Simulated scan of single mutants.
Amino acid sequence: MNPSDDSDRLRREAEQWWLRLRDRGATRGDAEAFKLWRASSPSHARAWNEVARLWQEMDPVLKQAASRDPGLAHPSARRPVNPGRRAFFGTAVAAGGAALAVWPPLSLWPSLLDYTADFRTGTAEQRSVALSEALTVQMNTQTRINRRAAMDAGKAIELVAGEAQVDAAGGGEAVTVYAGAGATHARQARFNLRYTGPQVCVTCLQGSVAVEQAGRRQTLEPGQQLYYDESGLRAAVPADMAMVEAWRSGTLSFSGQTLAEVVDEINRYRPGRVLLRNAELAARRVRMRFAITQTDLALRMLRDLYGAQLTQLPGGIVLLS
């Protein structure tokens, strides 16, 4: 085994022990099992010490971040879990620690939902999935997709979180993509869906798609885009097609977005977490372009171009102030 792979595995195990031992339902048996795990080798002990030190150092920062933004967890965490996966969660997570394990603080490690998704991508990972001869889905970073049963003949999937481009090649087969509080229907079209916050963004690239939410329905033609959430559908507007498709070329481009928006996007492609701690800096408008594999370079660009101060912490955490 590659030494770095072994180190990553032990770190993940140590993080799982950290969660388990902090759960109010932890037992004496858990404590004894942990002692055996930690004593397995010096590498096990080292992994535990690093994780424990990180969370002790980060505790004040996490409390401050949570007080400013109680909605750090993805909104879909409040939706019912897929019944087919209920047994997994029942045995994997004690009730007191479920929320923390399913939606880890600041997304610093994969959640249980990541591992139960039918298809998923990790940080900075992209992949293409062919679900049939007529349906291909290209997944962006930090994306989870599940198969769904179609209401009528055809194919159906659910975008649980993240971003994906769906290519329905035709053949008369209906395709439905569920995301958040709505669904997108198509027969012969290419479209992009992004679900990284409270709203879902649907962009029609080719053909036409119908977006449905709470009984309302709106058709999008090529170059049109709309947002929706639980409160309803927004009006369709012209899309910046180059920006929508930029991720497929491995490049991120910003032209007038706030620095806070740029940091949110960097966090999708970079291990660890960047925490923005300056409200004035967060509101600055940014113009920059960088490859998704060069997020650390992007942080240095923010430092040099916009006067941001970078503070490096363990675990890939960076304070931007």
Rank of each mutant, 00 (worst) to 15 (best):
A282V: 05
T311Q: 12
I157P: 00
T251Y: 04
G90V: 14
W109R: 14
L112H: 01
V286A: 10
A189I: 07
R234P: 00
I317P: 02
A279E: 11
R248M: 12
A186E: 00
V202D: 01
A94P: 00
R287Y: 09
R11D: 02
T251C: 09
S40T: 12
V262P: 00
D296A: 14
A98C: 07
Y178R: 07
Y115K: 15
G272W: 02
L275Y: 01
D304A: 15
R148L: 14
Q56M: 05
L302C: 10
P238C: 07
S231T: 14
V61I: 12
Q213F: 01
P271K: 09
W55P: 02
I145F: 02
V129D: 08
S249M: 08
G90S: 15
L319F: 07
R11I: 10
P42G: 07
V166C: 06
R284A: 08
V274T: 03
G171D: 13
P198F: 07
G207T: 04
A279R: 12
E57K: 11
T121Y: 01
E261W: 03
F290S: 03
L19K: 05
A153S: 13
L276P: 00
Q257H: 12
R287D: 11
V177Y: 01
D264R: 06
S231I: 07
G170R: 10
P75K: 10
M301T: 08
T123R: 10
V102A: 13
N140I: 05
M243D: 06
A95H: 08
R120I: 06
R277V: 11
A66C: 08
Q56E: 15
P314T: 14
A246P: 01
S67C: 09
R147S: 13
E265R: 06
L100R: 14
E163T: 09
A66Q: 04
S132K: 12
L54Q: 07
F254D: 03
Q188V: 11
Q257G: 04
M1N: 01
Y178T: 07
G250T: 03
G215E: 06
Y227L: 15
P70L: 11
G197L: 01
L112P: 00
S111F: 05
Y269K: 05
F191M: 04
S111Y: 06
L54V: 04
V81R: 04
L319C: 15
G223V: 07
R187H: 11
A31N: 09
L313M: 14
I292L: 08
F254A: 11
T143V: 13
Q257D: 05
E32S: 14
K35G: 06
Q188I: 04
D114I: 09
I145R: 01
L54T: 05
Q218Y: 03
P198T: 14
G250K: 13
A183T: 05
R24Q: 15
L305V: 13
D59N: 14
L135N: 02
L276C: 11
L310D: 10
N146H: 15
G232W: 06
T143K: 08
A189P: 00
D69R: 13
V211Y: 00
G272P: 00
D114Q: 13
D23C: 12
A298S: 08
A134W: 02
E261Y: 01
V286P: 00
R300G: 05
G315W: 04
G170L: 12
T295V: 09
D59R: 15
N82C: 12
A117T: 10
E13M: 12
